[in-house]
C-alpha cells in the first residue's frame, strides 16, 4: 500500500501526458531536426541549439526577458505585500475588496492589450495627453523606452492583485498571538514585520514569486497587440521571438529555442524555490 499514492495521481498524469509530455517530446524531436516549410526533416543533432545560442536576436530577447521578469518581481512582490497589509482583516469590506482585486485577473491578456492601446494611442489616448502636459511626447510606436515601460506597467497593473491576494491569504493565517507577543516584547513596527509577518508569509511568497516569474516569462499577447513587439525589437520578449519562428515554420529552430527557454525557466524557478525555502530558517550565525 506504500505506493497507493500513485493510483490517485494517475488521472492527473494521464491528462498531463496529452497536454504536456507528448508535446514536449515532439518539441525535443523538432529541435534535433532541420525542418523548413514542408521539406522532409533531416537529423542534424545539436546544430539547431548552436544556431540559437549564436543568434543575437535570441540572446537580446533573453536578456530583455530577464530584465523584464526580475523587474516584475522587484515591483509586484513588495507592492502586493503592501496592498495585502492595507486590506481590511474582517468585516463586510473583505468580500468587496477580494472581488475588486479579483476582477483585473479575469481580464483576458488581449483585452489588456486593447486597454493599453486605447490608453496609449497617439494623439488622443489619455496617457500621451497626460504626458503632453509636461511637454513630453509619449509614443509607444516610436519610443522603445515608452513601449517597454507601458508593457511593464501593464503587467504590474494586471498581476499585482494576484500577489496581493496570495499575501492576504498568508496574512490571514497568522494568529493574532504573534502580533501580541511582538507588542509585549517591545518590537518596533519594522521588527514586527521583519520577524513575524515576513517569515510567516514565506510559503505564499514562494508561490507568488514562482507564479509571477513563470508567467511573466510567458508574456506574449500584450506586446503583440500593443506594438507587435516593436518599435524595433524593444518589446520582443522570448515567447514572441519563439512563436515567430514557429509561425514561419522554422520548427527546428523553434524547438531548440523552446527547449533552451524551458530549461532557463526551470533553472531560475528552482533557484528561487531553493533560496526561499532555505533563507532565514533560523540558521545559526
Amino acid at each position: 500500500m506504500k505506493n497507493r499514492g500513485w493510483l490517485f495521481v494517475i488521472p492527473a498524469l494521464a491528462v498531463l501526458a496529452i497536454s504536456a509530455f507528448i508535446p514536449l517530446m515532439t518539441v525535443i524531436n523538432y529541435s534535433l531536426h532541420y525542418i523548413f516549410a514542408g521539406s522532409t526533416p533531416t537529423f542534424v543533432g545539436f546544430e539547431n541549439y548552436v544556431e540559437v545560442l549564436r543568434d543575437s536576436a535570441f540572446l537580446r530577447a533573453l536578456v530583455r526577458q530577464l530584465v523584464f521578469s526580475m523587474g516584475i518581481l522587484a515591483v509586484e512582490v513588495p507592492l502586493g505585500i503592501c496592498i495585502a497589509l492595507c486590506l481590511p482583516k474582517r468585516g463586510p469590506g473583505v468580500a468587496v475588496c477580494l472581488v475588486l482585486l479579483g476582477i483585473p485577473l479575469l481580464i483576458p491578456f488581449n483585452v489588456v492589450g486593447i486597454i493599453a492601446r486605447v490608453l496609449t494611442q497617439s494623439a488622443v489616448g489619455v496617457i500621451p495627453e497626460f504626458f503632453a502636459l509636461f511637454n513630453y511626447s509619449f509614443n509607444v510606436a516610436k519610443d522603445p523606452v515608452d513601449a517597454f515601460m507601458t508593457i511593464f506597467l501593464l503587467d504590474v497593473w494586471h498581476w499585482t492583485p494576484l500577489v496581493a491576494l496570495l499575501c492576504y491569504a498568508g496574512l490571514q493565517a497568522i494568529p493574532d498571538a504573534y502580533y501580541q507577543a511582538a507588542r509585549i516584547d517591545g518590537a518596533s513596527a519594522w521588527k514586527t514585520f521583519r520577524y513575524v509577518t515576513l517569515p510567516k508569509l514565506r510559503s505564499v511568497l514562494i508561490i507568488g514569486v514562482l507564479l509571477r516569474f513563470m508567467d511573466s516569462f510567458k508574456i506574449y499577447a500584450e506586446p503583440l497587440l500593443l506594438t507587435g513587439g516593436g518599435p524595433g525589437d524593444a518589446t520582443t520578449f522570448l515567447s514572441l521571438h519563439v512563436a515567430r519562428k514557429a509561425e514561419s515554420y522554422n520548427l527546428g529552430y523553434a524547438g531548440a529555442s523552446s527547449f533552451i527557454y524551458l530549461f532557463i525557466v526551470i533553472v531560475f524557478s528552482y533557484i528561487f524555490f531553493q533560496l526561499m525555502t532555505h533563507i532565514g530558517k533560523g540558521e545559526t550565525k
Partner: peptide, 18 residues
C-alpha cells in the same frame, strides 16, 4: 509544477499536430 512553466508559445505547434 514545472508544467506550469512551459511556455504556451512553445507548445503551440506540437499541440496542433497531436
Amino acid at each position: 509544477l514545472t508544467n506550469r512553466m512551459a511556455p504556451a508559445a512553445v507548445f503551440m505547434v506540437p499541440f496542433t499536430e497531436l
